[in-house]
Nucleic acid binder design. Structure first.
Lengths: 243, 243
DNA sequence: CGCGGCATTGACTTCTGTCAAAAATAGTGG
DNA sequence: CCACTATTTTTGACAGAAGTCAATGCCGCG
């Protein structure tokens, strides 16, 4: 459960979210404007085409951004983890569905107030630009994965990128020690991210396990004995940036 | 051929590029800093992993942004048309290959000077943010297409989006009149954009032609008799935004 | 005219999707 | 705590969409 209005000083995403570059006096303004909201797993945070009254930073938990076509086909376009920003200044409606995967806490700002902050506070504007450019890179890497990788490569690169994003939490000492990885997503949600079916995801995970590239303690917890070997399996070339 | 330093006043992308929101005095500064450069069709504008000395706006022509994997598989992540911005402040290297498709003219700024402009000129910073957010939406739509659409839907939606982007130039009076569309890309380049092979692109275009959805005058020129019908074929739902 | 690149078409293969069932896991209530 | 159900995951058999390999056709150009 999120505190009503805990101080930004103690915020877990203080140095990585949209407020990262703010000076104390700027932070004080944000502190006045912000409000927290918590969503249960599976809850809808936003729906494609509907208006979005708040812009938010994801403080804790995990959410997906996706589009569902009329016939039920679904494609995820982003995995939202702590510090990620939700919504965009200048457009009132979300183009995608946003759904809580685990329990999610958002730090929210009213649209108008936030848009004024973006105009008046260069530290927020430039931080938001920088984050948006990073997201753009991620989205384009995603396009490479979706368009040209095999099912096996998609799974491997998904695991690699997830491991990198959780690195601070789970990675132990040396780069050669096994990496423990918790999957926040169901097989179905992984399939939606990679443009695959649930069956193909399951089969490829089994193959990776049989090849000794991963070990499954339970269906949501994976251990990667040799991270570099999995990176090779992910078909990464030297240009693939570590975002 | 691009003029050496033609006035920004007459620039074809004056009101749609990164400088769109600039006041006359801001434009005057840009005018001092800019330089034009022209690339022949097929020329390399940037290479993945290599440094990029300039940030640019594409003034005329067409270019692709793509990644080529070690084994030759290639995926395009963007089609660059007039007013599109190339490069990003805050990172000196390009993550993707950028290649001229037709003859391309760029309006270029030195990295350092442009980054200073972004810091000092809110009209540039906010315009760049807005453009980047739009590109992010495009990239995410692309992910939906690459991940979940059939070959036929990919081709149809590619044609629809190309027609929309060329709308100002080619679209005639009413929305029901046939739309003429020139393909700037070869079959191979289209395939690279859609995550398909050249043969599949060719076959699907033939099928669309046989179904009366398009007519091919020559292999690069397409006429769309009923645009709305092609939109349906593209599998667009009501939420698909017209970007 | 003949070469070379691009596009189209055909025959066949393969990877992933579909349909279906079994196994594992989680959740519920007695 | 344990049976029982519901959900998720895994596995299998088969089908189908797109890829691969190969040949042919089309154009522009020297």
């Amino acid at each position: 459960m999120a505190p009503r209005n805990e101080s930004c000083q103690n915020c877990p995403i203080r140095h990585s979210a949209v407020c990262a570059d703010c000076e104390p006096h700027e932070l004080a303004i944000l502190e006045q404007l912000k409000s927290y909201r918590t969503y249960a797993p599976g809850a809808t945070i936003a729906s494609a085409g509907e208006s979005l009254a708040h812009l938010s930073s994801l403080v804790s938990g995990c959410a997906t951004m996706s589009r569902t076509l009329e016939d039920g086909r679904r494609q995820a376009v982003g995995l939202l983890l702590p510090a990620d920003f939700i919504g965009r200044p200048g457009r009132a409606t979300s183009l995608f569905d946003i759904e809580a995967v685990s329990e999610v806490t958002l730090c929210r700002f009213e649209r108008m107030q936030f848009e004024r902050m973006v105009r008046d506070t260069p530290h927020i504007a430039t931080r938001l630009l920088s984050m948006t450019l990073d997201e753009l890179d991620v989205a384009r890497e995603m396009a490479v994965t979706l368009g040209r990788m095999t099912a096996r490569e998609k799974i491997a690169s998904f695991l690699v990128s997830l491991a990198r994003r959780q690195a601070t939490v789970t990675r132990h000492s040396g780069p050669k020690s096994p990496v423990a990885l918790h999957l926040p997503l169901s097989r179905q949600a992984i399939a939606d991210h990679l443009g695959l079916t649930i069956e193909t995801v399951s089969r490829q995970l089994t193959q990776l396990r049989k090849a000794g590239l991963i070990a499954l303690t339970d269906s949501r917890d994976i251990s990667i004995p040799d991270f570099e070997r999995l990176q090779v399996e992910a078909g990464e070339d030297d240009f693939t940036p570590v975002i």
